[in-house]
Simulated assay, not measured.
Amino acid sequence: MIIVMKNGASQEELAEVEKKIIALGYQPHVIHGETRNVVGAVGDERGKEKLQIIESMQGVERVVPILKPYKLASREVQPEPSEIEIVPGLGIGGKEFVVVAGPCSVESQKQICETAEAVKQSGARLLRGGAFKPRTSPYSFQGMEEDGLKLLAEARKLTGLPIVTEVVNPRDVELVAKYADIMQVGARNTQNFALLKMLGQLDKPILLKRGMAVTIQEFLMSAEYILSEGNRRVILCERGIRTFETATRNTLDISAVPVLKQQTHLPVMIDPSHATGHSHLVPSMCYAAAAAGADGLLVEVHPCPEEASSDGPQSLRPAEFDAMMKKLRAFVEVTGRKMAG
């Protein structure tokens, strides 16, 4: 249920509503609006009718059922889009289009620092890089783990770029949180509910990637796991889904952007590198993402893709990334936004 407070309702009235929601066996989630507050009452769907009694309380305008199975992620609870602050002065989901760039995995100090400097010069606002790498084969490169996190922190110190890196195992959440500005959940962990619940207890942005065989509703239900634990700083990322097509690594579901924008207030980003698997296809998908209304991009960039430990064929060289970024600005501006930075 959504409890809509009256315009001008006092903090005391809001507190009483929260207490009543808890007494009825539900969890209150307050969304502060410009003119009024809204409280989402989340819990067991059975018996939710008893929440209707709250409509008679002081300061309450109305009580409205939430029809979507994902409650806190839906636009029923929050009609306005969310802007997720990463660091002061940089947010995702606002008027600015944000590009995250860097290698698939951290391999050496030279590699990550050289890449960080190059992508920053071209206009990227965040640095991506994997320290823990979940791979299909147990014999493939699995990442440098904490040593990789330390190199990411060194690159951040050198360039000032906040870092995005993946957490794979629930036991590593605390470790990765010490270094990362954004915690990434990869496609293979989209429905790792134990991991999602742990991340929901952090006060840190979470970049949630869509699973390769996950529907949009299932994707939003995964986001709901994080939101329901109290962490509202969730960013969605479409990275391609598995279809019968073999010409590309995955099939980029570009239509997911407007669908998600209609269904949820959460920001939506696109990862064109994992979607296509081929570097020459990445720029076109970047332009398409901007035109479709995405809030930003995650692009893989490597100074020497032929020597990359993972995903070299889908990684742009710094010069290719720079050329793409210059052309991208025109697509972003057509949508009424501007490039961050």
Rank of each mutant, 00 (worst) to 15 (best):
M339C: 09
G130H: 04
A124T: 13
A340E: 06
S255M: 04
T335W: 08
A275D: 02
D253G: 11
R249T: 11
L208N: 10
N37S: 13
H278K: 13
L220N: 07
A294V: 01
T248W: 05
L175S: 00
A247V: 15
G341R: 07
L266Q: 12
P88D: 07
I216M: 05
Y26T: 02
Y179A: 07
E333Q: 15
P162I: 02
E307A: 10
E16R: 05
G312D: 03
D181A: 02
D253C: 15
I241L: 08
E218D: 11
E18L: 15
Q78K: 15
V259K: 09
A290W: 00
L199V: 03
R317P: 01
G148F: 12
E12F: 08
K120W: 05
V257G: 00
A116G: 15
V39K: 02
Q78G: 08
L24S: 04
E146P: 08
A73T: 09
G91I: 08
D181F: 11
E145G: 07
V257T: 04
A340P: 03
D147A: 10
Q109F: 14
H274K: 05
I84F: 01
C304D: 11
T215R: 05
P267F: 11
T246E: 14
I86D: 07
P134W: 09
M285T: 08
L127F: 13
P313V: 15
A101E: 02
L297D: 15
E146V: 02
E117F: 02
G123V: 09
E174N: 12
P103E: 06
V259D: 11
R317M: 09
V173E: 06
N192S: 12
K20I: 11
I22N: 12
G43K: 08
D44E: 14
Y139V: 14
I92E: 04
R329E: 09
I54A: 03
R239W: 05
V119W: 06
A340H: 00
A131R: 06
R337D: 03
V282T: 05
E224R: 07
G200N: 04
V257K: 11
H32D: 04
G200I: 11
I53V: 09
P305E: 03
S228M: 04
M212Q: 10
T264G: 01
R36Y: 07
E306H: 15
E306D: 10
K20Y: 01
I235N: 05
E166W: 01
K50S: 15
L199S: 09
A124S: 13
V42K: 00
L14M: 13
F97I: 07
S74W: 03
